[in-house]
Design a protein around this nucleic acid. Structure first.
Length: 369
DNA sequence: TAATCGTGGAG
DNA sequence: TCTCCAAGATT
């Protein structure tokens, strides 16, 4: 006989109950056990919005200092809207996913102009802000304005699928949609901002990806995964992460004025709009002579390079293992107009720019930053 | 829709 | 050392 998908059947069943059991158990747990996080002590939409953009795919511990730095550098949405992008990237430097910073400023400009510095309030309004998707729109509108929309992030997908014992892959849009529908119903039985905070905190603190704390979980008696011993098997993911190699050859070129050649990356692609040493990339390893030959095509430099990284720097990206080789022009003098794709930048100027972590570390180590 | 976009910490 | 993946969004 045909059976309803588990989320739909749960949704139908819960419709009949007055207050979902999850709400009854998890909100008291949250109020007792929540972490003291700075963006939880405010209803200021600007601070909350900044925090949510930072926390996309980013752990609290990693994002905390950036949260304080951004609010310190750009106290108001107008400050952020009017800031030079280089200044923003200097603050965002090292946090990764730099399109977040670009879109954050686009959003600030939208709010400063079209909203006259007031902030969107509803979920649908926030969804129009660049860099704000379904999760962030629900989070900001509920935290700042108590708008009743469930925030569905990785924590929530995990605990809901475990709680219901669903083996639907959580990386499929249909699964997310079902969970969104279910929680959009449940959230009506609680204070929206408390519900969303409690929901995510529960996933982050108790229903963790590995070694969840089922023994002390207030929901363990009704958790389908706990009862069936599926906790380690749920959530299910369809896609597996496969990493491939990427070989990056960069040039540290300096002149007699103690300037170095830097390129601003194009807006699209990795490290968009940040500053890097000029570099070439290959999907497969190439002989060192070939890499040097290609560097020489770009720089009218006598073939005199020094390999600064005898062992390549291994820079791990989510889907890539990057092998970074850096060459310097050991003895040769580069003419001022030798290379038209980059700019000569002094040490002091470079300090105000944003660099990807791998270049920032190297240049700092060599005393160029 | 599937691929892309960083970095650092946990296990 | 290696895999996983974290308060996702965009194209």
């Amino acid at each position: 006989m045909y059976s309803l998908p588990i989320f739909v059947s749960t949704f139908v069943k819960m419709k009949k109950t007055v207050i979902p059991s999850f709400v009854q158990h998890i909100i008291p747990w949250y109020l007792e056990n929540k972490r003291d996080l700075p963006w939880r002590n405010t209803q200021d939409p600007y601070s909350i919005w900044i925090s949510e953009i930072i926390l996309q795919q980013t752990r609290v511990q990693q994002g905390m200092s950036y949260y304080h730095a951004l609010l310190h550098q750009f106290p108001t949405v107008q400050d952020l809207a009017n800031a030079p992008q280089d200044q923003l990237f200097r603050v965002w430097q090292g946090l990764g996913y730099y399109s977040r910073a670009r879109n954050l400023q686009l959003g600030a400009q939208l709010i400063a102009s079209e909203y006259q510095g007031n902030f969107p309030k509803s979920y649908d309004e926030w969804l129009q802000v660049p860099g704000v998707g379904p999760y962030t729109a629900a989070a900001v509108s509920s935290f700042a304005y108590d708008f009743p929309k469930a925030a569905v992030d990785g924590n929530v997908l995990r605990w809901v699928s475990r709680y219901l014992g669903s083996k639907d892959p959580i990386d499929l849009p249909g699964t997310k949609k079902n969970i969104q529908l279910l929680l959009d119903d449940w959230i009506q039985h609680a204070s929206p901002h408390v519900f969303n905070q409690a929901s995510m905190e529960f996933g982050a603190i108790l229903c963790t990806p590995k070694n969840p704390h089922c023994a002390v979980c207030p929901l363990n008696e009704e958790c389908q995964s706990f009862k069936n011993d599926w906790v380690d098997a749920i959530p299910v993911k369809e896609k597996k992460i496969k990493t491939s190699n990427l070989y990056l050859y960069a040039a540290l070129v300096t002149n007699q004025q103690e300037q170095m050649m830097l390129e601003k990356r194009p807006p699209q692609g990795i490290w968009g709009n940040l500053y890097t040493l000029p570099f070439l990339t290959f999907d497969t390893e190439v002989p060192m002579e070939e890499a040097l030959a290609q560097l020489n095509e770009r720089f009218p430099n006598p073939n005199n390079w020094k390999l600064e990284t005898p062992e390549p720097i291994i820079h791990l990206l989510t889907h890539r293992r990057m092998h970074v080789y850096i060459f310097s022009n050991l003895l040769d003098v580069m003419p001022k107009n030798a290379y038209k794709f980059g700019s000569w930048i002094s040490k002091d100027e470079a300090k105000g720019l944003g660099f990807p972590r791998v270049f920032e570390k190297f240049l700092t180590h060599k005393g160029h930053l």
